[in-house]
Structures are given as C-alpha cells and as structure tokens.
C-alpha cells in the first residue's frame, strides 16, 4: 500500500441546529483499499461521507486528496477530485436508458450540437463490458433493469469519468443474494484497478467480507479503526452497539475510555 493515502479526512465536524451529527471524525482510504464505514442509523457515517462527496459543507476539519488539501463545497468539486458517490437509493434517472444515465450532465455531443447517442452507447457498451459482460439491455430505460444491473450501471457511471475514490452507500441493501454476489465481484474488480472504496452500511454482514478495514462510528464520533483480520465480528458489533474499542483496533475519540474488552 502506498504511503500517501488517497483520502484523509481529519477532525471533521458538522452540526445541524445544535446537534453535532459528526464530531471530530477522522478517516482515511488508500488506493485499492476497501474501507467499511459502520454504525447504527444516525451514527453519522452517511453525514461524514456526504461531506466528502460535497453534499454537505463541513463546519470544521480538513480533507486531503493525495496528500494535498482539497476544496470541496459541492458535488461538482468532489467529482473534480475523482470522488464519485453511489447512493443507497440506486440513484439513476429511471426513464432514460443506460447510456443516457452514464452520461447524464456530461453528454457527448455531435459537431452540430445534438446528442451523440451512438457514441454514448458505444462507450457505455465498453464500460459495461468491463464491469458486467453479461449486460445487454442498452436500449431499455433503467427502471426495467434488475437491482444488480442497476447497481452496475450506477457503478459504471461513477468509474466512467475516472473516479479514483468511490463511495457506496448501502450498496447491497436493495439486492437479492445473487445480485449481492455480483456487486461483490464488481468491488473486487474495482479494487484491482486501484480504486479506493468507502462502503457504508449499518449491517456488518453486508460489507465485512468485502472490506479490508472497518471504521466504526457512534453518536457522530469515531469509536475505532481496525483491519478486518485483527478483530472478530463480535468485537466489531461491540464497537457499533456499545462503543467499546477492542485491543486489535485503534481507538478514536468516540471510544468509551478505560474500557477494554478482554
């Protein structure tokens, strides 16, 4: 793993009307690494990651991309740094086809200023062929696709524009077992290409087998960080539910002080 992380979020804070949704949270991500961000609903994990994706503006803290401080004030800024987000609602424009979704907001135009659907579809076939070679339904509106197919379109959309940092919010929550496996394959594929991935979930079973490292949050604060091999599933659950940081993990500001699980 390279020395300079792809992303370093340091001492990030944000408050909504007096409630500290994220409080002094730090997280980092290396190239080719999958980091699972875990915690209950309302633990602040989605809020933290929305700061990275530009959806929210932080009150305090710094974000570094490739070791350099990054200015991220809106989703467009984040995209400029190669940060792409795939939201848990499988955010696609339902009524248009795959190519149109991939290029939404960044359409390829012909010299006459009209949409170049042929070029967009050709590129869509190329990218989808890399991710999901069985995918053939390029002419259908994406609402006709299965959950797994939609997820691969959403991922393709993110990597099409050379995303290097991918944020996946509950990537498999809406999917069946087979499709979940398919997304797992996709994530391995992306890892091997050197893309760093943040997985967000409140269910550790969804993400644990995919992740290299976990960061657990509770009440807006980081309980601790651990390599997946260094802690047991029960210990991670203890972090999520009780805020107890096990010996195998590096404690964060949210860890209950003085309590160490035997």
């Amino acid at each position: 793993m390279s020395n300079i992380p792809l992303v370093e979020m340091e001492n990030i804070s944000i408050a909504f009307g007096g409630i500290r949704a994220v409080d002094d949270a730090s997280a980092d991500l290396h190239a080719g690494e999958v980091v699972a961000l875990l915690g209950h609903n309302g633990a602040g994990k989605s809020t933290l990651i929305k700061i990275l994706s530009g959806a929210y503006k932080r009150d305090g803290g710094t974000i570094k991309v490739n070791g350099e401080e990054a200015v991220i004030n809106n989703p467009r800024d984040a995209k400029a740094y190669g940060i792409e987000t795939i939201y848990q609602t499988l955010a696609l424009a339902d009524n248009v086809d795959t190519a149109a979704n991939l290029y939404l907001g960044r359409e390829i135009m012909t010299p006459w200023g009209t949409l170049d659907d042929v070029a967009m579809e050709a590129k869509a076939r190329e990218v989808m062929g890399r991710l999901n070679p069985r995918f053939q339904r390029f002419k259908d509106p994406v609402k006709a696709l299965s959950g797994g197919q939609r997820q691969s379109v959403a991922i393709a959309r993110a990597i099409l524009f050379n995303a290097r940092i991918l944020i996946m919010d509950e990537p498999t929550a809406a999917l069946g077992p087979q499709e979940t496996a398919q997304v797992g394959e996709l994530i391995h594929q992306l890892k091997s290409e050197g893309i760093g991935i943040f997985l967000i979930s409140h269910d550790i079973h969804d993400v644990l087998h995919l992740a290299d490292r976990v960061i657990v949050m509770k009440n807006g604060r980081v309980v601790g960080t651990a390599r997946v091999g260094d802690v047991t599933e029960d210990e991670i659950l203890g972090m999520i539910i009780l805020g107890k940081c096990p010996p195998g993990a590096i404690p964060g500001p949210g860890a209950i002080s003085g309590v160490v699980l035997g």
């Binding site: 696609l92 149109a100 907001g105």
Partner: peptide
C-alpha cells in the same frame, strides 16, 4: 435530455451537475 432527467429523478439530476 436534462428535462427528462429532472422529471425522472430530481436528486440524480442535481448530483449529475
């Protein structure tokens, strides 16, 4: 295309710039 996208899913359109 943007008209369709906005009508389809406003959030997605917004995040697409």
């Amino acid at each position: 295309r943007h008209v369709m996208a906005v009508g389809s899913n406003e959030e997605v359109a917004r995040y697409s710039g």
